[in-house]
Design a binder for these strands. Sequence first.
DNA 1: GCAATGCTTCGGCCAGGACCGAAGTAATCC
DNA 2: GGATTACTTCGGTCCTGGCCGAAGCATTGC
Lengths: 238, 238
Amino acid sequence: MTQLVSGQSISAVAAMIGDVARANILFALMGGKALTATELSHHAGVSAPTTSGHLNKLLDGQLITVEKQGRHRYYRLASPAVAEALEGLSNLAASGPGRHRPTGPKDMAMRQARTCYDHMAGQLAVAMTDAFTSRGLIIVEDRSGLITEEGQRVFADFGIGLDPKPRSARPLCRTCLDWSERRMHLGGRLGAALLAQSLQRRWVRPVKESRALSITRDGERGFHDVFGIPRDRLTPAG
Amino acid sequence: MTQLVSGQSISAVAAMIGDVARANILFALMGGKALTATELSHHAGVSAPTTSGHLNKLLDGQLITVEKQGRHRYYRLASPAVAEALEGLSNLAASGPGRHRPTGPKDMAMRQARTCYDHMAGQLAVAMTDAFTSRGLIIVEDRSGLITEEGQRVFADFGIGLDPKPRSARPLCRTCLDWSERRMHLGGRLGAALLAQSLQRRWVRPVKESRALSITRDGERGFHDVFGIPRDRLTPAG
DNA sequence: GCAATGCTTCGGCCAGGACCGAAGTAATCC
DNA sequence: GGATTACTTCGGTCCTGGCCGAAGCATTGC
């Protein structure tokens, strides 16, 4: 009964994530930023030595990667596949027993816009998805998404060159369930490129010590003028 | 820092799957068939009492459901979301360290065709995906899939009525990485309907005590005539 | 150079939980 | 009814693995 993927190997990966401290570490890294061991120990809620042990296990399991930089060590999720596996577990956790009340994050800034691994989430991201759909730039069906020819043109104008088939296992356009909005938002390579481009144009700015993003004046104008997002969806009250 | 989905709740779910015996149980249930406690104890490789404990935990965690029938208890995965979470973990496990050699399953029958939760996998499923794509019935891009108008017509003729938007969280058409073929095959509601219809028409038949499916004479003719699948991809040698 | 910071390894403690055998309940067969 | 099969609950054992404090390397700053 030897198989490429067995219960054995699945359980090994799941056990990695099945510890509260390690799950907190991975969850913190879902923000997409590289974090140091000390920062992660705060997120994990355990001592530095314990965190070090956990990080070694996660490295062994190839769920994260390190980069040494001076006396710091910066950790990241190893691949989008890790983020997707975590997302799958989140979907289960969200619908499972002992669910928290669906009030979403208390932090209004987080609720408005934040990073989700390498793309955007929150009200802004959902509004973008809506705007793209209604303008016929993308076609979203359930969890899948396709970019139309019109969309390719508009995104290219925006500075996003999307090679249709650069042999990557990464979906060009997929959606991701938003835990505060309970709606889909854009992920995949398109989502990642949109975040990168928005940061470069300074339409959004990362908020210190948080996954939240703040929308700048330029962003308010840009998201409205270029993508046709209603202004009332660009303000915290939105 | 209370959030809808926290590291805490993710780890609870992951810990469920993070035990070898439980992972084997879930993996066995990925075949889509309901199995009894005794059958599952064999898959898990532990005693009946231990299995009983595991099953209770999985029930508590809402990863599986039971149905009493006489002196048997039939267990199933609770939802497609569970299967998708397992799939996400499988993808990680397959690319992780200690990977098994990529020879795929030894069992040729399994390799040719088998169930993957509620849809088909193996050579047959990959061949179908290829045929549908080249005939323009579906458009597959990475992990997403869309059904064309032509596709809707053909599938409807085949007896698959696909309500475009029956408010279900389940994707209509998505793809799933095949661990024996290393290619994508069809999942989602379309994949499930194709399996159901193929079983009903007796184009495939479940193999006893296995996830494998055998292609019948009718199936060879049907898959070729209706969907244009080359005959050489319908034989074990394929 | 010395002190401070970031992170790791070591040693030892402790608890959760996975496991089994034996015994108990429930449904079926004859 | 009695024997068999299916499954569970109970009680007790054992071991994995998460945790910390103390001490040990690196790197940086002064």
